[in-house]
Simulated scan of single mutants.
Amino acid sequence: MQVLVYGAGQLAQMMYLDGAALGIDVRAVDVNSNTVVHPVSKARLDGTIAQAIDWADALTVEFEHVPEDLLEQAEASGKLLPGMASVLIGADRVREKQLLSRLDIPNCPYQIVTNVDQLPDCVQQLGERLIIKASRDGYDGYGQWRLNKAEELPQLQQQLAGLDLEKVPLVVEKMLNFDRELSLIGARSRNGEVMVYPLAENLHHQGQLHVSVAPATASNEALTARAQEIFTRLVEGMDYVGVLAVELFQCGETLLVNELAPRVHNSGHWTQAGAHTSQFENHLRAVLGLSLGATGNIGGDAAVSAMVNIIGCDDHQLALLSIPGVHLNWYGKSVRHKRKMGHINVTAESYQALGNKLQRLSGYLSTTHFPCLPDESQRLANIR
């Protein structure tokens, strides 16, 4: 079986590696050069994109910002999963908000802005503490601005005045005092089978994910059921096929959808070592019409996992592999500020044991590039 992935980054690479074990051949489209490449070596492969589409049993994406002309070509083949409409929802916050409203799924109060003169009305309607997001091309904290008090509004309007907001509107959200950030990763297959992973608890720094822990601490059946109900309503409402990531804010007992990602997701990388079937394998299974694999934690209900992102550095020590249950995944990229260079998965039999392993891991990593790890490891180590 054969899959063509649009995008040639680390997510396509990890799909290739999991697909190889199943005898699934995965190739990638470098959307910057419009060429077909090997997902690991990045070597250019013979043939055009059109020929690769004919070759493939299924087409999919590793990120949502694929040029629309390529998406249209893929959609016309009838093989693109998830479909173009779902991919575009992940690429455009306005479409995303419209979907959430149509499906009556709770999310942050918001307004759409196409002119900076509308911002004072946003303050009037939503309050003076706002998160302003570009509706397209924003990720990892880019394309976002904050308003902390009304006095800052004139300066913010001036800062945004040069943007073409008719072309790329802003989504202005009320800044909420949420308790924590969660995500639910799951998959829906061609035949409608749905499988979800345990809720993950996510720790961000400067707009980027640094640490995920799964299952999330202090979870309960009611919280998990609410998250799963949201996921099911989304995938059925979109007739979605593949892995979908739903990022959530927890406010007390309420869950609000923050963002959707129509693909395998950073907060699901822990599944490589911690789950019976990784998100990458399940995505391939879903788009090819195969039965989905089990999503529970290896080691049973008490087992826990963490994923630690390696961002903007390559100064980790390979001696960290001496820690039992620690797995390194390196992407083979050149170092760049805020660039995701790789990640570390850690598995343990309890939160306390996980915290102790993360404390040991901290000894091999600089606090400059891993600022969240010391406090998070201490928090987990204290859970009884």
Rank of each mutant, 00 (worst) to 15 (best):
T277H: 12
I344F: 05
H369V: 10
L100S: 10
T271E: 07
K97F: 01
I311Y: 01
H343F: 10
V26P: 06
I105Y: 12
V116M: 07
S350I: 03
A381H: 13
A353T: 13
I53Q: 12
T254C: 05
N329D: 15
S219Q: 06
Q10P: 11
L147Y: 01
T277N: 04
Q111C: 11
Q158P: 08
D121P: 05
P215G: 04
E201C: 14
H316M: 15
L318R: 11
V61Q: 08
M84L: 07
T232M: 10
P106T: 10
Q159N: 08
A319W: 11
P374S: 05
Y110D: 03
L22G: 09
G289S: 11
G289R: 04
Q13P: 01
L318S: 10
Q206L: 11
V241A: 10
Y110A: 02
Q73I: 03
L11K: 10
E229H: 14
L119H: 13
G192M: 02
L260C: 03
V36Y: 04
D92I: 00
K357M: 11
A50G: 00
V287G: 03
V172G: 06
S322F: 11
F280A: 00
T48Q: 02
D18K: 11
V326C: 11
I185Y: 12
A85C: 00
N107P: 00
E349G: 09
L373H: 01
Q118R: 08
G7A: 10
M175A: 05
A8K: 08
Y364H: 15
A76D: 04
Y139I: 07
V113H: 11
E376H: 14
L71N: 05
V113Y: 06
A20T: 13
I323Q: 12
F280C: 04
A294C: 13
V287I: 15
Y197P: 02
V3Q: 00
G162F: 04
R95Q: 12
S86N: 00
N356T: 08
G237W: 07
I49W: 01
R146W: 06
Q272V: 10
D239W: 00
N345G: 06
R339D: 12
L153D: 06
L81P: 05
A43S: 15
V287E: 02
E349A: 14
H265I: 05
G289D: 01
S41N: 08
G7E: 03
Q208S: 07
K357Q: 06
N148K: 14
V235Y: 05
V5D: 10
W330V: 13
N191W: 08
N266S: 10
G162H: 13
E259L: 12
E72G: 05
E152A: 12
D314A: 13
D117C: 08
V94P: 00
A216Y: 01
I383C: 02
I53F: 10
L328W: 13
G300V: 04
L147E: 04
F370M: 07
L320M: 15
L22K: 14
P324I: 04
N345Q: 02
Q378Y: 07
N148A: 09
L203S: 09
